[in-house]
């Protein structure tokens, strides 16, 4: 089971969390030849409301996409954080420390300056810098569950070569937020 990873991207509709999960899982499945599943839970509107995307990556065929004790949970809103608070201890929870300050503290609860980092990146790259890619980076900074080469390839496939460079820089900024 050591090569199995389970990741949740959560926040609100419009943050691109479905895409974050898709990109990460696709990188593993297509560019690393692993098995990966991605599932979603979202509300009826395209914007706002709780939304999340779950990713499972494995060397073996995946029986069930359901996550049991996720390794990493990214929570970009306080609402999302509160939903996963009870997982603290089992999972590493990464949250946006610019957006809210949870009462809960611990080694496995990591605040990262998502909003200010994104603002800084936006000055350079405009709206091509997206919080969802930053979120993937924040996970990869803790553990490179998918190689950076595979990430570059998945960016190239989905966004084109030029945008892949920008996305790699945003990803790198995310990695730096959590890398110790």
């Amino acid at each position: 089971m050591s090569n199995d990873y389970q990741v949740i991207f959560s926040g609100e509709g419009g943050q691109g969390l479905v895409l974050a999960g898709t990109i990460l899982a696709e990188a593993a499945a297509i560019f690393e030849g692993k098995y990966a599943t991605q599932t979603v839970d979202y509300g009826i509107a395209s914007r706002g409301g709780f939304a999340m995307s779950e990713v499972k990556i494995s060397d073996e065929e995946i029986d069930c996409p359901e996550l049991i004790e996720p390794d990493y949970i990214v929570a970009l809103t306080e609402d999302a954080f509160n939903r996963f608070e009870k997982e603290a201890g089992k999972s590493v929870i990464i949250f946006d420390s610019d957006a809210f300050s949870p009462a809960l503290e611990g080694d496995n609860i990591k605040g990262c300056p998502f909003t200010t980092t994104l603002r800084r990146l936006a000055e350079e790259y405009g709206n091509k810098a997206r919080i969802n890619v930053l979120a993937i980076g924040a996970v990869l900074g803790l553990k490179e569950i998918v190689s950076l080469q595979a990430m570059r390839k998945v960016f190239e496939k989905n966004f084109g070569a030029k945008n892949a460079d920008i996305n790699m820089k945003v990803l790198q900024a995310g990695i730096e937020m959590t890398r110790s």
Partner: peptide, 9 residues
Amino acid sequence: EVVGHMREK
């Protein structure tokens, strides 16, 4: 909905 929206290879 799960099967319709889940992504896999």
